[in-house]
Design a protein around this nucleic acid. Structure first.
Length: 549
RNA sequence: GCGCCCGUAGCUCAGCUGGAUAGAGCACUGGACUUCUAAUCCAAUGGUCGCAGGUUCGAAUCCUGCCGGGCGCGCCA
């Protein structure tokens, strides 16, 4: 029995109790959830439904709980229902009902964990979107890990997700980048507001390789601009690819300009009556929708602002048919939320169409001291540096296992020196152990067969493990709904712990001089189910699930 | 000044949108290897959940006000 079906049974038992006691059933919630109590004395699952509803129904929670318990105890698969404290229902399943889940998991395989909580949602998820003026650095790497995991978790929850990267390849930043390349090629010092660092020299040389005549052309900077940006794109894409983050769409800002989409977007906003001119500049009246001040779209010198391109990009996405646009930004951009939301509403979209997720920064430490990074000084730690130091799996895992609401401090030395402290190895090792047991079973000709006797799975370690396994789909759904993929990582750690404890206390394979018993068979099913769930959980994080370590 | 985020064990962080005696990893201490790879397990130590009020059967969680830290407040991108 899954927690979801048990919750359904709790609800129907509650409805029956309300009827028997002639109470107003309107106070019963449409859905409820059972939770896994920490203390094993409180049963396999607990429900607080009596506490939640008793007061509203004008009755005593304890008395109500007793009536619900009576109904629930009669339900299939429920072994026992106790009432504790002010009116908690502590539910114990019979072992057979609890153990069924292993078979269901194995049957579902890679799709176990999939759920329909976001079915029919058509989502555009934009993340990373780092300027193509240098390699992706740590901040961007965090979003590459978190955003990709979020995309996977939402897809597992039934959403149609297009992941997207926005290249800001128009404007002054790339001009500064081009000027820096040119200066490097000519052996001149880095220009004002330019970029430094080895990668500038590398790309400058690479440009010269593609266009040996670059310095002799009429407009050398234009050549470095065009070829350099292209090479930078290619490098970023390659790095992300190596990292396992594959975007469905790489969108160039330049295309918006080339296709006249900025004019079109402003015209649309004008139609809606939200445009005005002041001192020769064009503004969007974002204050109508709660922004602090109105925002310029076109400067008095006739140039577009960055925000104008954002408006055009927003409209472009909407016209591509997405009904929800999710945008992940670093904390240094949180000041944009007001104008972006205002713009969304100015286009006539309902609140919630645009969802902006703000992630806090990554601080790098060296010897316990913060390292100030800036592309301009060329001392950035890049995605590649991290991957070289600890590998893709460890990097993705450690970046995705924290809530995006908290800044993370990463000591790069600690990472490289104590690589094995990374919890990813704990989880991966659990997976390797399940694979090892299954491998050994196969070598010995011990097959798990078509069925098992779930009622034999009554060891406390087995019970804990089964409950952890049963929880996975709800974890995925919650991670998707809250946009918090780190929950999957934390869950994987819990599951791995439950498995390690199980394997320590419960012998799975028969000893060499013994025949396999039905207990061995049942446990082998549990091991295989655990393997599936660990692999699926790691898969959602884009981390590999090795069969040996 | 205004806005967003954070403040939980020595350190790094969870805490499933209000539940029972607040958890994990690391570090420290003591145990368990004739192993299903011990990259593991068990035990012990460690807490005024920043502070003060409020809401209620019940608060780390929700509300208000302070304190501390990070980030941001352009006709820059």
């Amino acid at each position: 029995m899954t927690p979801e079906t048990l919750a359904e049974k709790v609800l129907s038992a509650t409805r029956a109790a309300f009827e028997a006691l002639a109470l107003d059933a309107a106070v019963i919630p449409a859905r409820t959830a059972v939770e896994r109590p920490r203390d094993p004395k409180h049963g396999d699952y607990a429900s607080n439904i009596a506490l939640q509803t008793a007061k509203k129904a004008g009755t005593n929670p304890r008395a109500l709980a007793e009536k619900i318990a009576e109904n629930l105890a009669a339900a299939d698969g429920v072994a026992k229902v106790d009432i504790a404290g002010p009116g908690f229902l502590n539910i114990t399943l019979d072992a057979a009902a609890a153990g069924e889940i292993a078979g269901k998991i194995i049957a579902a395989g890679p799709s176990y964990g999939d759920n329909a909580s976001m079915a029919d949602e058509h989502i555009n998820l934009e993340f990373v979107s780092a300027n193509p003026t240098g390699p992706v650095h740590v901040g961007g790497t965090r979003w590459a890990a978190v955003g990709d995991a979020l995309a996977r978790v939402m897809r597992a929850s039934g959403a149609k997700v297009t992941s997207e990267y926005y290249f800001n390849d128009a404007g002054v930043q790339v001009n500064n980048f081009a000027a820096s390349l040119l200066a490097s090629a000519k052996g001149e010092p880095t220009p004002e507001n330019g970029y430094a660092g080895g990668y500038i020299d590398d790309i400058a040389q690479a440009v010269l390789k593609v266009r040996p005549d670059a310095l002799e052309t009429d407009d050398p900077q234009a050549v470095f601009h065009e070829v350099g940006v292209e090479l930078m794109f290619a490098e970023i894409k390659q790095d992300l690819d190596n990292f396992g983050t594959h975007f469905d769409v790489y969108f160039n800002e330049k295309d918006l300009h080339d296709k006249g989409e900025l004019d079109a977007a402003v015209a649309r906003l004008d139609q809606q009556g939200h445009i005005f001119e002041s001192e020769g500049a064009v503004f969007l009246r974002t204050t109508t929708f709660g922004d602090d001040k109105d925002r310029a779209l076109k400067k008095s010198n006739g140039e577009w602002t960055y925000f104008a391109a954002d408006c055009a990009y927003y409209l472009d996405k909407r016209e591509r048919g997405f009904d929800k646009l999710v945008l992940m930004l670093g904390a240094d951009h949180h000041g944009y939320i007001g104008r972006m939301q205002a713009m969304s509403q100015a286009f006539g979209d309902k609140p919630g169409t645009l969802e902006i997720l703000i992630g806090q920064m990554v601080n790098l430490l060296k010897d316990g001291q913060p390292v100030r990074m800036a592309k301009r000084y060329g001392n950035v730690i890049t995605l590649n540096d991290i991957v070289e130091a600890i590998g893709v799996d460890a990097a993705r895992y450690v970046l995705a296992r924290y809530s995006s609401d908290s800044t993370i401090d990463i000591d790069i030395d600690l990472w490289t020196k104590h690589g094995n402290d990374n919890p990813v190895y704990y989880v991966q090792y659990a997976h390797a152990r399940t694979s090892g047991v299954l491998r050994n079973a196969a070598e010995r000709g011990f097959d798990k067969g078509d069925s098992y006797d779930a009622s034999l799975l009554d060891h406390p370690r087995e019970s804990d493990l089964l409950k952890a396994l049963a929880e996975f789909p709800a974890v995925v759904a919650t991670a998707a709904a809250l946009r918090e993929p780190h929950r999957v990582a934390r869950y994987a750690e819990e599951l791995a712990a439950a498995y390690h404890r199980f394997q320590h206390d419960c012998r799975v394979l028969p000893f060499p001089d013994e025949e396999a018993t039905p207990v061995n068979t049942a446990r082998l099913w549990v091991v295989d189910a655990t393997r599936v769930v660990l692999a699926n959980a790691l898969g959602l994080l884009g981390v590999s699930a090795p069969e040996r370590m």
